[in-house]
Simulated scan of single mutants.
Amino acid sequence: MSQPATERLPEFKLDGKVIIVTGGARGLGLTQAEALLEAGATVHCVDVLPEPCDDFARVSGRAQALGTTITYHRADVRDAEGLDRVVSSIAEAHSGVHGLIAAAGIQQETPALEYQAADANRMLEVNVTGVFLTAQAVAKAMLKHGTARGGSMCLIASMSGTVANRGLICPLYNASKAAVKQLAKNLASEWGQYGIRVNSLSPGYIVTAMVEDLLVQHPEREATWASHNMLGRLSAPREFRGAAVFLLSQASSFMTGADLIIDGGHTAW
């Protein structure tokens, strides 16, 4: 018979864990990074932007108050060599890496008949190849430093990888997110033998800063999109904080090769 826990929900704690978050300069990536900090993790955010958003300074201050750190690194997920250098330097500094949230991605709304090859290639390079290269670099670091056992990765997909969004014409984006879901399953099947878990997270519509700008151009979409799910509203980045901690912690220790859909019931109709 197991002994009763002396602390509340210890399996959600990330004390001593080093986690990399791509796309962590702003939006969902930064929000989830803050949640990981609160759970005790040391976080390294990687993004292509020259500097993170203004809110990064607030999160950094919170990290200090929590007794941990968050560090920003500039890198393009399409640049395999540059990405390897960043991940390797993080792993060397901490003697390992324990987790990854791959949230870097781009969006483009263009009808299929008007899509240019260069745009299609860029979309797939960032959203699919970039996610793969990131996961590969982190897995190599885990194996090199012996932190693979108990390692966990969350690849950010989308409900758009399951359904075609009514009224939102994004054929290559949707295809890329379907690929991310399949990539997670395949990496999970290969790396399970090393103790590395890989899952995907499929959010519904999230009101990030970029989406707010889009709603200024198309204000009617807010009500339309909200009407497509069972809760009748759009989500906020903070509503995916718990999912980040769950998927990166031992709370999900027997979960791999799965897709966690958090979409207000959009795809359940």
Rank of each mutant, 00 (worst) to 15 (best):
Q3A: 14
P4S: 09
A5R: 04
E7F: 03
R8H: 14
P10D: 08
G23F: 09
G24T: 05
G24H: 00
L28Q: 12
L36H: 14
L37H: 07
A39P: 08
G40F: 08
T42P: 00
V46E: 04
D47M: 01
L49C: 07
P50A: 14
D55F: 12
F56K: 05
F56N: 01
V59D: 04
T68L: 07
I70M: 01
I70C: 08
Y72N: 04
R74F: 05
A75Y: 12
A80P: 01
G82H: 10
R85N: 13
I90R: 10
A91E: 11
A93E: 14
H94D: 11
S95F: 13
L100V: 09
I101Y: 11
A104W: 13
A104I: 12
Q107K: 07
L113N: 11
E114A: 14
A118M: 04
D119G: 10
D119F: 03
A120Y: 12
A120R: 04
M123C: 12
V126K: 05
N127H: 09
V131E: 00
T134H: 05
T134R: 03
A137T: 10
V138L: 03
A139S: 14
K140W: 01
M142Q: 08
L143R: 15
K144W: 09
T147M: 07
A148R: 02
R149Q: 14
R149K: 15
L155E: 07
L155R: 07
G161E: 08
N165S: 07
C170A: 14
C170I: 15
P171R: 03
P171H: 05
S176E: 03
A178P: 13
A179L: 02
K181G: 12
L187T: 09
E190K: 12
W191F: 07
W191Q: 02
W191D: 03
Q193F: 02
G195L: 06
N199F: 00
P203E: 00
P203W: 00
V207K: 06
A209T: 08
A209F: 06
M210C: 01
V211L: 11
D213N: 11
E222H: 06
E222T: 14
A223T: 12
A223C: 01
A226F: 13
M230L: 15
G232L: 09
L234Y: 12
L234C: 13
R238P: 01
E239R: 13
F240N: 08
G242L: 09
A244P: 10
A244N: 11
F246A: 03
Q250E: 13
F254V: 13
T256D: 06
T256H: 11
I261F: 11
I262C: 11
G265L: 05
T267R: 05
W269P: 02
